[in-house]
Design a binder for these strands. Sequence first.
DNA 1: GAATTCATCAATCCAAAGATGTAGGACAAA
DNA 2: TTTGTCCTACATCTTTGGATTGATGAATTC
Lengths: 232, 232
Amino acid sequence: MREYKKRSRVLLIDDNAEHLRGVKELITLESSYDVAGATTNANIGINLAKKYRPDIILMDINMPEKDGLQAIQELEKLDIGVKVIALSAYDDADLIFRAMKIGAKGYVLKTMASAQLIYAMDEVTSGKVYLPTALTSRFFEYFQRSFKNEANNSQEENLLTYLTAREEEVLDLLTQGNNYKGIAGKLFISETTVKTHVNNIFQKLQVNDRTQAVLYALNNGFANRRHTKMAV
Amino acid sequence: MREYKKRSRVLLIDDNAEHLRGVKELITLESSYDVAGATTNANIGINLAKKYRPDIILMDINMPEKDGLQAIQELEKLDIGVKVIALSAYDDADLIFRAMKIGAKGYVLKTMASAQLIYAMDEVTSGKVYLPTALTSRFFEYFQRSFKNEANNSQEENLLTYLTAREEEVLDLLTQGNNYKGIAGKLFISETTVKTHVNNIFQKLQVNDRTQAVLYALNNGFANRRHTKMAV
DNA sequence: GAATTCATCAATCCAAAGATGTAGGACAAA
DNA sequence: TTTGTCCTACATCTTTGGATTGATGAATTC
């Protein structure tokens, strides 16, 4: 018994009414959590979350109409401190990755034992992020693959290396959405000079216009060296 | 006994000679792994790896001279299929993240029970990625925090939601570097129609030209759901 | 059935972007 | 000193992009 501590409240969102009922029963009977609400509709679920402020939400992410991932994202944006555990029928690395990326505190397969779900809830309640070992492994396969590709890309040959320092400056300003005038103003040079630079950049990057140049820059680890792209 | 299967070979790299000896003994006595080599020097370790092709490397990443992380990176570049498990005294989220990012197949604390280390080796040998639960949680704290900052930027309001389906298609093609003609051709509509859509997009996204529209799209989780920038 | 919304297309006009060629001065390397 | 690279700058010309207005049919909503 841990009646001395406030029981955590759980909100259930699952478009499969049957599964919803099953989980509700499971939690009611086999855990120390209170079910604060249960719905088959994601939008209603979000509103319930706003209203009742549950500690945890179990969110089915395989819903046809409203995407569960999107719902998680909206909940995170609300910033009401609710911890979302994604429930899914699939162990797709991609799905797991996206769920965790947008802030899910856990990811549990529907096929997993009920004890696992309750354990996940316990861990998440205590402030941790919980992923079953098997899913962790899948997650990292995806995670590492996405960085590996990146390494390979930069290995091939980065046309950006052919740019002069000045051209890099210009390209940097291009990637911030500046036009010729804006760049000229910021670099204290004439607009025609900027045009010259930009044309040289096009030649070196083998592109036809500024949009393509910007895209090339962003996709090849340009500038914002603080950021690394990542497949999602 | 599983003498029927080829015993996996392990290479140990740890600048702490004492710890190195301890691990070696542990593996020799309490596991079914063979120690293919052991060294206190990362560079020598890399050479040993090239020479003896171990299945697994246990790499201390808290070494003063040569950074263990860098060593892992070099090993990954060699692409000899060796699986590296990072050994560390610290459970810094940052360290864990970086180790996993560059391709470590596991991360185990030196303070953890020896059984945990051997379990990690088993998991990694079987092709999985292994992180102890506690470290997984830390990893995800870091992981999610880095995405959260990103999300906050778009927290204000995502103008992309105002786009119609068709406009999204057009914007998607814009983010691939297409000009009017290219988009018209791909959508089988006239160029003027594309112009109309693009203009509407500009209005909705409150930008002045296609480059800014593309940048807005990329920075606000548009389509291109394949790529997301990430602080590293 | 009226009102909206959306996708489609067009004409016009002006601004911006892009292509091309030329050229001078600074600077560094050969 | 010469050669080469880079940054600067301009002129000219063509193409593309962008703003604005208006119009039609289809689908949806009220």
